[in-house]
């Protein structure tokens, strides 16, 4: 029994597969939710890190660069354990799902920040000069002139990280998040049949990542480029 569904182990492999599908789909929903929350966190924190790293003041830029490097060079699992087991000591108790999604988002923010940086640096110096000559503030230059040119160019690269995040969600199973792989493992533990649930996880993952890639491509194509030449 899991999520109120029971498995059918007495009518062959196909009946078993069919009976556990609803459970795996419940897990799949959690996987998708964790990916989306994690991706959202990665997009937001990554942009913040990119903006800070690009600051002219070294007091701002240097710590941001250090944080990025630190996040990138430590394993996701270590960060996850840290958030899950250490934060409660300081009175911050988050649900396992949120902790996991946050850890994913933070880990990937180090990567997305580099993507943003590349996009930001690809904006021509002349754009900054024109903005300055018109007396537009540095902040507004960043938000209204640099970012609108940088972000559309990096959508495909950011999208690739969405797919990577999806594939890292199973790590969250170690902190009891019932994402798809964890569900499959529980089913295997209970029924002594690992082959069928794990194969199904593989197949569902393949479908999931293919669909996600397709969505990223559609977003990229349909996003208004408005006069931007994309290289």
């Amino acid at each position: 029994m899991l999520f109120g569904y029971s498995w059918d182990t007495s009518h062959g492999e196909w009946a078993f597969a069919l009976s556990i599908l609803p459970m795996l789909l419940r897990g799949l929903v959690v996987t998708i939710e964790a990916s989306i929350v994690g991706f959202f966190v990665a997009m937001v924190i990554g942009l913040a890190l990119a903006a800070l790293k690009g600051a002219r003041s070294r007091i701002v830029a240097w710590p941001a660069a250090f944080v990025t490097e630190f996040i990138r060079d430590t394993p996701l699992l270590v960060q996850l354990f840290f958030l899950y087991y250490v934060l409660p000591d300081y009175g911050i108790i988050l649900p396992a799902f949120l902790t996991g999604a946050l850890a994913l988002g933070i880990q990937y923010s180090a990567y997305t920040s580099e993507v943003y940086r590349a996009g930001i640096e690809a904006v021509e110096p002349g754009q900054h000069e024109a903005a300055k000559a018109l007396d537009i503030t540095p902040r507004r230059t960043f938000t209204h002139i640099v970012l609108p040119q940088a972000v559309p160019r990096v959508i495909p690269a950011l999208g690739n990280y969405l797919v990577s995040i999806m594939k890292d969600v199973p790590v969250l199973s170690v902190v009891t998040v019932l994402e798809m792989l964890n569900v499959a493992k529980i089913i295997g533990d209970q029924t002594f049949d690992y082959l069928v649930p794990l194969s199904m996880v593989g197949a569902l993952y393949l479908i999931l990542t293919l669909v996600a890639s397709a969505i990223v491509r559609i977003v990229d194509v349909s996003l208004p480029k408005r006069g931007l030449s994309l290289r």
């Binding site: 002349g126 754009q127 024109a130 002139i145 040119q149 408005r226 006069g227």
Partner: peptide, 9 residues
């Protein structure tokens, strides 16, 4: 500017 530097977006 020589290169115009218009805001392309």
């Amino acid at each position: 500017f020589q290169q115009f530097n218009l805001f392309p977006h």
